[in-house]
Amino acid sequence: MTRPEDSSAARAQAWAALGEPGAQILLIEGPSGAGKSTFAGELRQHWPGPDTPRLVRMDGLYPGWSGLEAAARALVRDLLLPLSRGERGFWTGYDWEAGHTTKQYPVDPGLPLIVEGCGALSRASARLADLRIWIGAEDGLRKRRALARDGDTYLPHWDAWQRDYEIFTAREDPRALADLRLRATETFVIPEGHSAAE
């Protein structure tokens, strides 16, 4: 049996769950270091429809290291709810070095949208999306990947961020809200219940 070298099996399940590609909204949730950003980029790159999705990363919405809850609320209020009404939505950027918000980025309706990051999938956002994806990963793997990506910037905030995320997931239970559940390996994501050798 050939060992997979990418997330093609996970993408195939996403396309099957999505149905005919159009102006759908996809939410990708999971803990830090689970591979959400990479998988979102792969979905965008391999999108089966004629229009390339817009990609919004929650990292751009957090107003600082304690901003998980605020960003989750802003996603629904400023972006998803207006889009659900056929109106222009927006998200507000944040300058992590300067420590303040920057500008609003408009998002017009009528094109597919992928939102990835911690806090993307809540009970409020779930009802406004067409496909809800959860990516899980073993704790040690997550931490290695997150710190390899962000290094010394993330390390002092890891424990506090984890506590905030555990509070969020205990209340919202995003894994239960998901239509598709995936898990991370060292290099890609696979559907839950599959092995990396399949």
Rank of each mutant, 00 (worst) to 15 (best):
A9W: 10
A10T: 08
R11G: 08
R11K: 11
R11F: 06
A12I: 13
A14T: 15
A17V: 05
A17N: 04
G19M: 08
G19H: 08
E20K: 10
I25W: 02
L27F: 07
L27D: 04
G30M: 07
S32P: 08
S37F: 12
T38F: 14
T38A: 15
E42F: 13
H46I: 12
P50W: 00
D51R: 13
T52E: 15
R54Q: 15
R54M: 13
G60D: 10
W65G: 12
G67T: 08
L68E: 04
E69C: 02
A71W: 02
A72V: 01
V76N: 00
R77D: 07
L79S: 02
L80R: 00
L80W: 00
L81Y: 08
L81A: 15
P82M: 03
P82N: 02
S84Q: 06
S84I: 03
R85L: 11
G86D: 05
G86L: 05
R88N: 09
G89N: 01
G93R: 03
Y94G: 07
E97Q: 14
H100G: 10
T102L: 06
T102M: 05
P106A: 12
D108Y: 13
L111V: 15
I114R: 10
I114L: 14
G117Y: 02
G117A: 05
C118N: 03
G119W: 00
L121Y: 00
S122F: 02
D130L: 05
I133M: 11
W134Q: 06
W134Y: 12
I135E: 07
G136P: 05
D139A: 13
G140K: 01
L141T: 05
K143R: 14
K143C: 07
L147R: 05
A148E: 09
A148G: 13
R149T: 10
D150N: 11
G151W: 04
D152E: 15
W161R: 11
W161E: 10
R163D: 14
F168Y: 14
T169F: 04
A170S: 14
E172F: 03
A178P: 03
A178V: 08
R181C: 15
R181G: 10
R183A: 07
F188G: 02
P191M: 08
E192K: 03
G193W: 09
A196T: 06
A196R: 12
